[in-house]
Design a protein around this nucleic acid. Structure first.
Length: 516
RNA sequence: GCGGGCGUAGCUCAGUUGGUUAGAGCGCUGGAUUGUGGCUCCAGAGGUCGGUGGUUCAAAUCCACCCGCUCGUACCA
C-alpha cells in the first residue's frame, strides 16, 4: 500500500449530524438583535430571566404526557454514570415546571419569568425544521385567572409590534381547551373509549391550513385520505352529521353559519355560547374567552391584533384552558417560488397540571413560546432584520517582520481600536504581500494601512481604499498599470491615522446610506 | 415510520448499448509579479465514482441490500 493511500485512510470525513447547523456571523448577529428586542418587551412587562440546564432527568421531562405512548421517542437521551437516564430538553416549559416545583418555597408566586434557549428534538429534520432550535418563552406561574392569559396575549402582540411587524401582518388567535372539549362532547365524542377519536379529530382540524377544508373533511370521515404518494391516512370515522356539527361550530361550514361567521369577536363568542348551550354542553370555556376578549379590548387591543377564534387547536396535550397562537399573515415566496402565508411563529396556553405533578399542590400557570429561528426567517422576508451589515475591520498590513516594526503596526491597530474602530494586524505569512491585500479584499475590509521602510523613515503611512479601488478596477485591464497606479491610495502622516481613518469610514457610511 | 426521486473532485455537473489510465467549469495552491486586490496566462494538488455483496472476461454504468440527501405523507411535547 502506498503512503498516499495510507494517509487517505486516516483522513476523517468532516460532517455535521443531520438536522443540525453551523451558525454564520450574520445569523448570530441577527438573532442577537431580535432576541434583544423581545427581551426588552418582557422586561417592560416586569418579567425576570431564569435559565435552566439543557439536560434534565428523563422522568422530569415527558412521561406525564397522555398522548405519549412511547416515552423516549423523540428525545436525545443518555445514561448518567449512576445509570439514571437524562435527556436533552425538548421545550422550555417542562424544565420551568421542574425549577418552580424544586424551589417552590423560595419563589414568590405569581412568578413572572422569561428565558431563551436551545431545545432538541430527535425527529426527522426537514426544510426549516432542525433537531436543535431556539425558543424564547415567557410564563406566569401561580396565576389562576384568565387575566394572566389575557396579559400573555397582549405581550405577544407587543412583541410582534416591537419586531416591526405591522398591524394586519400578524394576529394573536385565542381559543380555549375547554371549548374544544365541549365541542367534542357535543359531537358525541365524550368518554375514555373515544379518546383516540378526539385526538384524530384534533389532528385533522389542525391540518386545515395545509390540506384545506376538503382534506380535513376526508380525515374526519371514515374513508380517510390518500396523499400524492398513494399513502393512506385512516380517517376519524365521523358521520356526516357529526362533521357538519363540528365545522359549523367553528364557522368553517356554509357561508354565514357558525360562530366565526361574524366580524366581531363579541358576536363570535355570543354565537359560540348559544350553540354550546343548544347542544347542552358546558359553555364555561366560551365565557372565559368572553372575559379575555373584554380585557384585551379595554386595554386598547383591536381585533386585528388579538382575535378570538374557536378553531385554534395547538397540539399540546397538557393545555388545560386558554390557548393562543401568534400567526403571521403576510405572504412570502418560498424556495419553490410559490407564494404562501407564513403561518404560526409561536404559541402557548394554560397548563395548570404541570407543576402539580411534582408538588401535589395546585400551581396554575400560563405561558407561551416563540420559535426564534422561524420568526427570524419571517423577519428577513419582511426586510426587518440584518439590514445594516457589520463593517469588516481596517487591516494594518505587515511589510517588515522585525519586532520594532511589528510593534509600530500593533500600535496603529491599538490606536484605532481605542477610537472604537474595528482593526486588526495581518497575522498570516506577511512575506507574501499580495496575499495580505487579497485577504483584506475577501474579508471585505474597507481600508488597508501600509507602511514599509520608506514610509516609516518619513513617518507616514499609505491608506488604501479597497472599496473605491474595487470600483476603479473595472477601468484598468492591464495588471502592470493596475499595480503601478496604486488606485485609491493616499499618503497620510502617522499622527493623523485615527482622524483620517475615521473620516474615510464616515464617507463610506454616507455612500452606503445613499445607495440603499 | 411509509412511498417516490437522486448520490461521480471542495462546489456545479458531463461520462454513449457495460470496454484501455474517469473528465470539464468554478474554487484551491504555486509561478509570471521578492512593496500592492481585480484581469490574463502557465503549472500543480485534489476521486475508495455513497457503502457492501452479486452478475460478467470486464461495472461509475446491470442486480440486491444498506447508508445519505431530497420530495410527499405520518408523527411532532
Amino acid at each position: 500500500m502506498s503512503d498516499k493511500k495510507q494517509k487517505k485512510q486516516h483522513k476523517l470525513k468532516a460532517r455535521l449530524p443531520r438536522g443540525f447547523v453551523d451558525r454564520s456571523p450574520a445569523d448570530i448577529r441577527a438573532t442577537d438583535e431580535m432576541v434583544a428586542k423581545i427581551k426588552a418587551v418582557y422586561e417592560r412587562y416586569g418579567f425576570d430571566p431564569v435559565e435552566t440546564p439543557i439536560f434534565e432527568y428523563t422522568d422530569c421531562l415527558g412521561k406525564f404526557l397522555p398522548d405519549q405512548d412511547r416515552p423516549n421517542e423523540g428525545v436525545f437521551s443518555v445514561a448518567d454514570d449512576d445509570e439514571q437516564w437524562m435527556s436533552l430538553r425538548y421545550d422550555l416549559t417542562a424544565p420551568l415546571a421542574r425549577h418552580v416545583a424544586e424551589n417552590i418555597n423560595e419563589i414568590q408566586l405569581p412568578y413572572r419569568t422569561y428565558r431563551a434557549g436551545w431545545v432538541f428534538r430527535n425527529e426527522k429534520p426537514g426544510p426549516g425544521r432542525f433537531r436543535q432550535f431556539m425558543q424564547f418563552d415567557a410564563d406566569t406561574v401561580g396565576a389562576p385567572g384568565v387575566q394572566a392569559d389575557a396579559e400573555m396575549c397582549m405581550m405577544m402582540a407587543d412583541t410582534m409590534e416591537a419586531l416591526g411587524i405591522a398591524h394586519g401582518n400578524y394576529v394573536i388567535r385565542v381559543n380555549n381547551r375547554k371549548v374544544l372539549d365541549s365541542v367534542m362532547l357535543a359531537t358525541g365524542l365524550g368518554g375514555d373509549e373515544e379518546a383516540w377519536r378526539r385526538l384524530a379529530v384534533m389532528r385533522a382540524l389542525d391540518k386545515r391550513d395545509r390540506l384545506g377544508l376538503q382534506g380535513v373533511i376526508q380525515l374526519l370521515s371514515p374513508k380517510g385520505r390518500v396523499d400524492e404518494s398513494g399513502d393512506h391516512t385512516p380517517g376519524a370515522g365521523l358521520s356526516d352529521e357529526q362533521i357538519t356539527r363540528l365545522l359549523n361550530t367553528f364557522g368553517w361550514g356554509e357561508e354565514g353559519s357558525g360562530s366565526k361567521s361574524s366580524v366581531s369577536s363579541g358576536i363570535t363568542i355570543g354565537n359560540l355560547i348559544d350553540r354550546l348551550e343548544q347542544y347542552e354542553v358546558s359553555a364555561e370555556g366560551a365565557r372565559e374567552l368572553q372575559t379575555i376578549n373584554e380585557l384585551v379590548r379595554s386595554a386598547g387591543y383591536g381585533e386585528d391584533q388579538i382575535d378570538i377564534d374557536p378553531s385554534v387547536i395547538r397540539g399540546l396535550e397538557y393545555y388545560t384552558g386558554p390557548v393562543y397562537e401568534a400567526e403571521l399573515l403576510f405572504p412570502v415566496t418560498n424556495e419553490k417560488g410559490e407564494t404562501v402565508v407564513f403561518g404560526s411563529v409561536g404559541g402557548g396556553g394554560r397548563y395548570d397540571g404541570l407543576v402539580k405533578r411534582f408538588t401535589g399542590q395546585d400551581v396554575p400557570a400560563t405561558g407561551f413560546s416563540i420559535g426564534v429561528s422561524r420568526l427570524m426567517t419571517a423577519l428577513k422576508n419582511l426586510g426587518k432584520l440584518g439590514q445594516e451589515d457589520v463593517v469588516a475591520p481596517v487591516l494594518v498590513t505587515v511589510m517588515d517582520g522585525d519586532t520594532a516594526s511589528l510593534g509600530k503596526y500593533q500600535k496603529f491597530v491599538q490606536d484605532l481600536r481605542q477610537a472604537g474602530i474595528r482593526a486588526e494586524m495581518y497575522q498570516g505569512n506577511w512575506k507574501k504581500f499580495g496575499n495580505q491585500l487579497k485577504y483584506a479584499d475577501r474579508r471585505g475590509c474597507p481600508l488597508a494601512i501600509i507602511q514599509g521602510s520608506d514610509e516609516r523613515e518619513r513617518g507616514v503611512v499609505q491608506v488604501k481604499d479597497l472599496i473605491e479601488g474595487k470600483r476603479l478596477s473595472g477601468e484598468i485591464a492591464d495588471n502592470v498599470t493596475w499595480r503601478e497606479s496604486r488606485p485609491a491610495q493616499v499618503e497620510i502622516a502617522e499622527a493623523d491615522i485615527v482622524s483620517e481613518i475615521t473620516r474615510m469610514l464616515a464617507e463610506h457610511a454616507e455612500d452606503r446610506a445613499k445607495s440603499s
